[in-house]
C-alpha cells in the first residue's frame, strides 16, 4: 500500500476548476495533467501558475490533476493552493519523507 496524501479543491461548475494534489513518498518531480477548454490559449500560463504555487508552498514532488471549466487565473491559483494545503494537512505516514 502506497502512502499517499491527497488534497482536492474546487468544483466542476462553470468558471471553476477542480484541482487534485497527490503527495506520495514514491513520486519524484512534478507530474501535471491539465484538462481545459482554454488549453490552446492558456496552457503554458496554467502550467506556470500551478508550478509557481507548488514552489511557494515548498512542494518539490507531486502528482497534480487539473480539470478546468474556464477558471480565471486567480481561481486556478486559489484552487491549487487550497488543494495543496489540504494534502499537506493530511497526517503523514511514516514512509513520507520531507
Amino acid at each position: 500500500m502506497q502512502d499517499q496524501r491527497i488534497g482536492v479543491a474546487g468544483s466542476l461548475e462553470s468558471c471553476d476548476v477542480l484541482v487534485m494534489v497527490i503527495l506520495s513518498a514514491e513520486s519524484r518531480g512534478m507530474t501535471l495533467e491539465i484538462d481545459s477548454p482554454s488549453l490552446a490559449s492558456f496552457g503554458e500560463e496554467m502550467k506556470n501558475t500551478v508550478m509557481e504555487i507548488m514552489e511557494t508552498l515548498g512542494i518539490p514532488h507531486a502528482v497534480i490533476k487539473v480539470q478546468d471549466r474556464g477558471a480565471l487565473d486567480c481561481t486556478l491559483r486559489a484552487r491549487t493552493e487550497a488543494a495543496a494545503k489540504r494534502a499537506l494537512a493530511v497526517p503523514a505516514g511514516e514512509k513520507v519523507s520531507e
Binding site: G10, A78, A82
Partner: peptide
C-alpha cells in the same frame, strides 16, 4: 472555509 478564504483573497488581489 479554507478554500473560500483563499478564493476571496485572490479575488481581492486580482479581480
Amino acid at each position: 472555509k479554507d478554500a473560500a478564504r483563499i478564493l476571496v483573497r485572490n479575488a481581492l488581489q486580482h479581480i
